[in-house]
């Protein structure tokens, strides 16, 4: 079975942890996020031809005042940047995080616009959002609460990585 390391990034409070919580196998407490800044879960994706195991490195919420361990990105096959469509700032910070990632590694990135179960209130225009989306390999709208788009996100990511 193919394994891939995926990093989950995003500003504090965008719902990274919640996004994967119900869809992954994990044995570690979330306290690891605040102790060493990362918690790792795994998600097995069954594709038509093969299975892919995604090792999901849920990296502690990043804001402009604190960076993240760039070493956590080492060896990653892709990253998922999570933004909260109810908070404008989360996209800006996401964009900044993406720049930090690109400075370290050159890997595919996926944008997950989370909390789509709520009304969008980030006052970004469609064009502006599309412009940001263009920096990613693909974008998914997700809801950790309803599960919308989550499976598809991982499946598409897995497919992309094994193709």
């Amino acid at each position: 079975m193919i394994q891939k390391k995926i990093c989950l990034l995003g500003a504090t409070g965008v719902g990274k942890t919640s996004l994967v919580k119900q869809y992954v196998e994990g044995i570690f407490s979330e306290k690891y996020l605040t102790t060493i800044g990362v918690k790792i879960d795994k998600k097995e994706i069954i594709l038509p031809n093969q299975s892919v195991q995604l090792m999901l490195w849920d990296i502690e919420g990043i804001d402009r005042y604190c960076g993240f361990q760039p070493k956590y990105l080492r060896g990653a096959s892709a990253y998922i940047l999570v933004a909260d469509q109810t908070r404008s700032q989360s996209l800006i910070e996401g964009f900044e995080i993406q720049q930090m990632v690109k400075a370290v590694v050159d890997i595919p990135g996926v944008l997950a616009i989370n909390k789509v179960d709520l009304d969008a209130s980030w006052h970004w225009s469609t064009n502006e959002v599309e412009e940001i989306k263009a920096n990613f390999d693909f974008t998914f709208s997700t809801s950790a609460k309803t599960g919308l788009g989550v499976e598809q996100l991982f499946s598409k990511l897995a497919s992309m990585l094994v193709d």
Partner: peptide
Amino acid sequence: ETGLLLNTVSADLNTNADADLISAMLTAI
């Protein structure tokens, strides 16, 4: 580089499903 588990053996001969998580976490630590 990736922290991915390449192989594992255990004394009780049972494959432990958490080995890959432990490997990744060890790498993170």
